[in-house]
Simulated assay, not measured.
Amino acid sequence: MGMRVLITGASGVVGTLMRPRLRREGRILRLLDLVPPAPPEAGEAVEALTGSVTDPDLMARACEDVDAILHLGGISRENGWADILEVNIGGTQVVLEAARRAGVGRIVLASSNHAVGFRTVEPELPADSSPRPDTFYGVSKAAVEALGSLYHSRFGMDVICVRIGSCFERPPGVRGLSTWLSPDDGARLFEACLSCPSPGYRIVWGVSGNTRRIYSLAEAQALGYRATDDAERFAAEISGPAPTGDEAHYVGGPFCTTPLGEPN
């Protein structure tokens, strides 16, 4: 029987980028999203479920016979408090509880730099810096980390929270030259999270080895992650002004000035 990995939010930006990169011989990817995942390609071992991470019955089925979970599902930008609370915080608790009941021992939770968005920019910012969220979205990611800590401490589950910078095919603008996590490096990092023996509870930065990087790689490297990409190769192609004022001073960039509770 191969390893079965549940990916929530599998039709989202990061989930779509990770799906082909996390394929392995003998591995089954169970894909869950509100948007039905794309049909399997030839030879691709996938199982698809459609629905919300807030649905306990669906999550119970999704966690059956699963070895590990990559929890990417949720609202990925600022939004109204009620939706953020229900989907990002409530949904994560539903996922963790379903995993506990099913005996899933390894959970990787997608956190964000916005959990610490009001920390000032500094070289090698530690991955476990205490929360200073910049939005309701950032609050939800701090809560995701806290829930992961709770389920590790109470039930002994291995939980790794990845504070993702900006995971896209290319760095999104000038700020992205420091925050970018290349899709290939993202897959390398998630593989390290899935395979590291007995990690316990960890918080790591999800970032590539960028020349302009402000985030520490030490914590992710301790899991076995080795970044090979650098956003600097895109620098000449990226136009637009560099961040100024609070957007340059704080880790969260433009999220630190976006109106609270308004979709962005």
Rank of each mutant, 00 (worst) to 15 (best):
R61A: 12
R61V: 04
R61D: 14
R61N: 00
R61C: 00
R61S: 13
R61M: 05
A62W: 08
A62M: 07
A62R: 07
A62E: 01
A62D: 03
A62P: 08
A62I: 06
C63N: 09
C63I: 00
C63D: 08
C63A: 14
C63W: 02
E64N: 07
E64F: 06
E64R: 15
D65F: 00
D65I: 03
D65M: 04
D65T: 07
V66N: 03
V66F: 08
V66G: 03
V66T: 08
D67F: 09
D67M: 06
D67C: 11
A68G: 10
A68W: 05
A68H: 05
A68I: 07
A68Q: 09
A68N: 05
A68T: 02
I69Y: 09
I69C: 02
I69K: 01
I69N: 02
L70N: 06
L70Q: 12
L70A: 13
L70I: 14
H71C: 11
H71N: 14
H71Q: 14
H71V: 10
H71T: 13
L72A: 10
L72V: 06
L72N: 09
L72R: 10
G73T: 13
G73V: 07
G73F: 07
G74Q: 10
G74F: 11
G74N: 13
G74I: 09
G74V: 12
G74D: 11
I75S: 07
I75Y: 05
I75T: 13
I75C: 06
S76M: 11
E78H: 12
E78C: 11
E78D: 09
N79L: 06
N79W: 14
G80M: 07
G80C: 11
G80T: 12
G80D: 15
G80R: 15
W81C: 13
W81V: 15
W81Y: 13
W81A: 15
W81Q: 10
W81D: 06
W81S: 13
A82W: 03
A82M: 06
A82K: 14
D83E: 15
D83K: 12
D83T: 13
D83I: 08
D83S: 15
I84T: 14
I84N: 07
I84H: 06
I84G: 06
I84S: 10
L85P: 00
L85N: 02
E86L: 10
E86D: 11
E86A: 14
E86K: 14
E86F: 05
E86Q: 13
V87W: 03
V87I: 15
V87H: 04
V87Y: 01
V87T: 15
N88A: 08
N88Y: 04
N88F: 04
N88Q: 02
N88H: 07
N88W: 03
I89C: 09
I89W: 01
I89R: 02
G90W: 04
G90C: 05
G90E: 00
G91T: 04
G91W: 00
T92S: 14
T92M: 09
T92F: 12
Q93C: 00
Q93L: 06
Q93S: 06
Q93E: 15
Q93F: 05
Q93M: 08
Q93T: 11
V94F: 01
V94C: 14
V94W: 00
V95P: 00
V95H: 02
V95A: 05
L96P: 07
L96S: 00
L96H: 07
L96I: 03
E97G: 01
E97D: 15
A98C: 09
A98P: 03
